[in-house]
Each structure stands twice: as C-alpha cells, then as structure tokens.
Design a binder for these strands. Structure first.
Length: 342
DNA sequence: TCTGGGGTCCTGCCGCAC
DNA sequence: TCTGGTGCGGCAGGACCC
C-alpha cells in the first residue's frame, strides 16, 4: 500500500508577509494584484483574520475592500515567497527525495519506503518547517495523491489528517463535490442540477451515466475519484509546454497603437523568458479579452522552433490582424507553446 | 458591477493525407 | 475516378489548478 503525504502551507503569502513584518500579525491581511484595492486585481491570499470577513482567494480586490475596508492590502511579492518556498522544498527533499512540486506552497511526498509511522513523519516535517521558516503547514496522508490532498485541507491551519482506504465512506463521501480535485464551479453547478451535492452522491452514479454526461475521460475520472481511486504516480520531473505573458489594463483600451505596442512588449518579455530558461517554441498564440470579458485566441504555428523576438513578434502580429478589434480591449496576452530545450 | 496571471488538459471541429 | 473511413495536426474555446 502506498503512503502519500501532501504538505500545504497555511495562508502562505500572508504568512510570509507577517514573518517579514510582525506588526501585521493578528490583522486582516489581503495579498493580491498591485496591492491597491481600488484597482483591478483579485485576491491571491487572505489571512485567516481576513477570511472572517468573507474574503477569499480569487475574489476581486474591490469586493474584498468593501467587505473589510480596514484590512491591510499588499501587492504580491513573488520573489520573497519563492525564497521561502525554496527553503521549504529543501527541507522536504532532504526528508524524502521522491517529491512532486505543486506550485509555490504545496508538495507531495511518497513516504511508502520510510520506516516510520505516518503521524511521526508528519510531525517531524512540521517541526522542521517551523524551525527553518517559522511557518505552519497542514499535512494530509493517504494511499494516493487525490485523498492526501483532500486530507490536508480537512483541518486547517496547522492540521494533520490521515485517511485510510476504510475511511473513504465515512470521511470523504459526506464532503461537497467541490472538494474533489478537478471539480470546479461549473461542474459543481451542473452536478447540482442532477441533485448531486456530495462526493458520496457522485459515487452512487453508474460509470455509463457519468461517461454519457461528461465524456469518456472526465466521466471515468469522476467515477474513480468519487471512490477514492487514484493510481497516478508522483511527477518528480517536468518540462514546461508553454510560456506566456499577459496584462489586464487598468482601463480598457481601443487605440490600435496602444494594442500594437503592448503586443510588442509582451512578445519581448516572452522571448526573454524563453532565452533565459533555454527553450524554443513553435506555436505563437495571441489572446484578447474584450471589455465584455469575452476571451478569444488566434494561433500560428511556425515551420521551425524559435526564441528570436523578431520571429515571434511577426507571428504575433499575424495573429493580431485576424481579430476584429471593434470592442475595447481589457486584456492582451502572448503565449509560445510547443516548447523544446535549446 | 466585478472578474489576475501563469499554466495544463480536454473537446470539438476542420482540412489534409492515405 | 469517385467516395468514404480513419488518423493526425492545427486551431479555438473552455474548465480547472495554484
């Protein structure tokens, strides 16, 4: 039986900011966008004191401001969080080399071959992370990644939850479907129209019905996930498939010169990122979000991979020309996909 | 009225080659 | 020569993740 451990840092961005500036401890703290709650942007992380006001991640900063005007609002400081993240990952890797990175503040460890009880391992990891960074995390341990991730979320902050195969019916099935990895807001609403609100209710549906409603791939995934089945291995090494840059304007723009200048700037940034990381790519995609929030893309695949800014810019402008720019533009983005190592 | 930025994966559709 | 099935790459959109 595998033993998979999921580590999830508690309100990570907010916790790092509070470590840097202890005067913020105990205050409602909201990290997101430019840090100005009167401007466009969404909440990346809210401290637990801010969550009491109903503030949560992905909420518009302006809404967060209305809910709690006296909260402290800060911009996202990725460099600072990355540094702390690197130290945490160092601690984890030393503990167990079979590690899968999941973003800046999460990781899976395969502790199957560590000859110690799960609880003891988790407690040691927690102590080492506090020792190294002063920050707390929540840990879930289960026979697979899917259940370990659900478990780490069950008691936050500073939690430790162990789920066994025998506990699935009693502890997983009562949870709302939204707790399942891969079930987002759209699927949640759709399942509700089928009278399915819990993971257990989802597990009561036959496979053929799920495939009929959600397609072969996702239908089968839901069938297995609702039963706690997940054989997916830890991904310990991975190569990026695409790289992109995008910007949302403070005020929607309609001027072609501004649009062209922005696309040229984004193209340069993407090309610089690719050169720095040592990649070339083939498919250039331009993304345009209009003032009504409708988002469209146009793509062009080159004959030969490149990371030359001139080639990428030419392709980007070919894509841009294929848009009808009648409405004002809210967001522009440039992506290069089909990446390969130089 | 509001809805970031950086990604992945899936689906449906189209044209093309065999 | 015509027609249809099939597989595949490219493209556009959408859902989801952190």
């Amino acid at each position: 039986m595998r033993r998979i451990l999921h580590v999830d840092m508690d309100a990570f961005f907010a916790a790092v900011e509070q470590k840097i500036n202890p005067a913020l401890i105990g205050k409602p703290l909201v990290i997101g966008g430019s840090g100005d709650p009167t401007k466009r942007g969404v909440v990346s992380t809210a401290s637990y004191d801010a969550r009491k006001f109903g503030i949560h991640s992905a909420m518009p900063m302006r809404t967060a401001y209305k809910l709690c005007p006296h909260a402290v609002f800060l911009p996202v400081n990725y460099e600072a969080y990355s540094r702390v993240s690197g130290r945490i990952k160092g601690v984890l890797r030393k503990f167990c080399p079979i590690m899968e990175d999941v973003g800046i503040d999460e990781a899976f460890l395969d502790i199957s071959n560590i000859d110690k009880p799960s609880e003891e391992i988790a407690k040691e990891i927690k102590l080492k992370i506090i020792d190294e960074t002063g920050l707390t995390c929540s840990i879930g341990i289960a026979p697979n990644k899917l259940l370990a991730k659900i478990a780490s979320d069950m008691q936050k902050p500073d939690g430790l939850t162990i789920i066994m195969k025998d506990n699935i019916e009693s502890r997983i099935w009562p949870l709302p479907v939204r707790k399942l990895w891969g079930v987002g807001p759209k699927t949640e609403v759709y399942l509700k129209t089928m009278d399915i609100e819990t993971i257990g209710a989802l597990a009561s549906l036959p496979l053929n019905k799920l495939i009929e409603r959600f397609g072969e791939s996702y239908g089968r995934y839901l069938y297995e996930a609702s039963r706690g089945i997940d054989e997916s291995p830890l991904v310990t090494h991975w190569e990026p498939k695409s790289t992109s840059r995008e910007i949302t304007f403070e005020k929607d723009i309609g001027n072609w010169q501004d649009i062209a200048r922005t696309i040229a700037g984004l193209t340069r940034e993407v090309a610089d990122d690719m050169k720095q990381a040592g990649y070339k790519g083939r498919t250039v995609t331009v993304k345009v979000r209009f003032s009504d929030f409708k988002t469209h893309t146009r793509a062009k695949t080159l004959v030969v991979s490149t990371n030359l800014v001139d080639k990428i810019r030419m392709a980007a402008f070919d894509c841009l020309k294929r848009f009808e720019l009648k409405k004002k533009v809210r967001l522009l983005g440039v992506r290069v996909g089909g990446l390969e190592k130089v």
